[in-house]
């Protein structure tokens, strides 16, 4: 027994069972963001995968892995995107070390 089921990704639309007008707005925004624009679909798919890994959403990781492949990316490129996202996440932790420095310096002689 686990909370995440692969099949649930296909049930995304069921969120509209309640407050459908809000889900419709969300879906229009979500889809519009992925359209070709100043960034290509491929660039957006790589950003999506990087964010998906960062927010650790298994559904998003599944969806954006497919999207990356279907936009012509390979695993080396996808791995670079995932490393960058993870490195930023690591950096976000590391920069808080300055807070520790500050705290240390404040109370130390």
């Amino acid at each position: 027994m686990h909370y995440y089921n692969e099949e649930d990704l296909d049930r995304f639309g069921e969120i509209a069972k309640y407050k459908p007008e809000l889900f419709e707005k969300f879906l229009a925004w979500y889809q519009a963001c992925q359209e070709e624009g100043e960034l290509s679909r491929r660039e957006k798919a790589l950003i999506g995968l990087a964010v998906a890994v960062t927010v650790q959403c298994p559904y998003c990781i599944d969806a954006f892995t497919n999207s990356c492949l279907e936009n012509g990316s390979n695993m080396d490129q996808m791995t670079e995107a995932m490393h960058l996202a993870s490195a930023i996440r690591g950096g976000a932790s590391m920069i808080h070390g300055i807070q520790a420095h500050n705290a240390h310096d404040k109370i130390s002689m």
Binding site: S40, R41, L69, E70, N71, G72
Partner: peptide, 12 residues
């Protein structure tokens, strides 16, 4: 495709 996914846009 090398797997169970659709091809990218041909021109891309």
């Amino acid at each position: 495709p090398v797997g169970a996914f659709l091809p990218p846009l041909q021109e891309t």
